[in-house]
């Protein structure tokens, strides 16, 4: 692979020629082994309050439930309020809840082009920016939060962390290696590419509804 070797050799020669001192105290090996945290802004808010505030700013809607078996009712409430279809696809973790009692048709699978509503969990959430963190995997299809026009996401209250740095800390502790995709989602899809006019539903969901679960 001559390109690889040539490029690396040129980088070494260039850095030698430029002869600049490294501004960091820690070595490369140290930095990779125990990544330091850079200065953070003031985080003087309660994480849940901040998450809700940012979620609202990013045009998500919010609801709260105390127990997981309240989810079907909460989903129904949201769908009927917004006159949305009652046919869903979801992640496997939610399929055993009492959906039929609410008149909801639900399937546990990844979304395809025609699915209108997708229900997912989330790995954690970041309060600072009002962001949901989803990890792709066998039990957490990436398409469910992407293809449908409406994305409903469940986040456990205890999984709302302050910053992205905290999210990495959680991931490093709980996940052996990063999944194929880590998706940070902050509200519905949008664009302002035509005359800076904000429009929702560019390619992803038009709506993101976040349901905070107590336990």
């Amino acid at each position: 692979m001559p390109a690889r070797e040539n490029i690396l050799a040129r980088i070494r020669a260039a850095n030698k020629a430029a002869n600049v001192a490294d501004v960091m105290d820690s070595s490369v090996a140290d930095r990779l082994a125990s990544p330091p945290i850079s200065p953070l802004p003031k985080l003087e808010w309660d994480p849940e309050g901040q998450f809700k505030l940012r979620g609202h700013e990013s045009a998500s809607t919010l609801d709260e439930i105390a127990q997981i078996d309240e989810l079907p009712r909460a989903v129904t409430r949201y769908l009927s309020k917004n006159t949305l279809p009652t046919k869903l696809v979801c992640w496997p973790e939610f399929i055993d809840l009492p959906w039929s009692a609410e008149g909801i048709q639900i399937e546990s699978r990844g979304a395809i082009g025609d699915d209108k509503v997708g229900l997912t969990g989330s790995y954690c959430a970041i309060a600072e920016t009002g962001t949901l963190v989803l990890l792709s995997g066998q039990e957490s299809h990436a398409t469910t939060s992407l293809l449908p026009e409406t994305h409903i996401a469940v986040i456990r209250r205890s999984r709302i962390v302050k910053t992205m740095e905290d999210a990495w800390q959680l991931i490093r502790g709980e996940v052996v290696s990063l999944p194929r995709q880590v998706s940070f989602i902050s509200g519905p899809s949008r664009t302002a590419d035509i005359e800076m006019t904000l429009v929702y539903g560019a390619h992803g969901p038009f709506r993101v509804h976040v349901i905070i679960l107590d336990q």
Binding site: R109, T131, S177, L178, P179
Partner: peptide, 24 residues
């Protein structure tokens, strides 16, 4: 860039679809 606190979708990719993944 856009005056947002974060972009709507930040997608971090590490490798292709895993053996048991359904998508990717």
């Amino acid at each position: 860039a856009t005056g947002q606190v974060i972009s709507n979708y930040v997608s971090m990719t590490t490798g292709p679809k895993r053996a048991k993944d359904n998508d990717g």
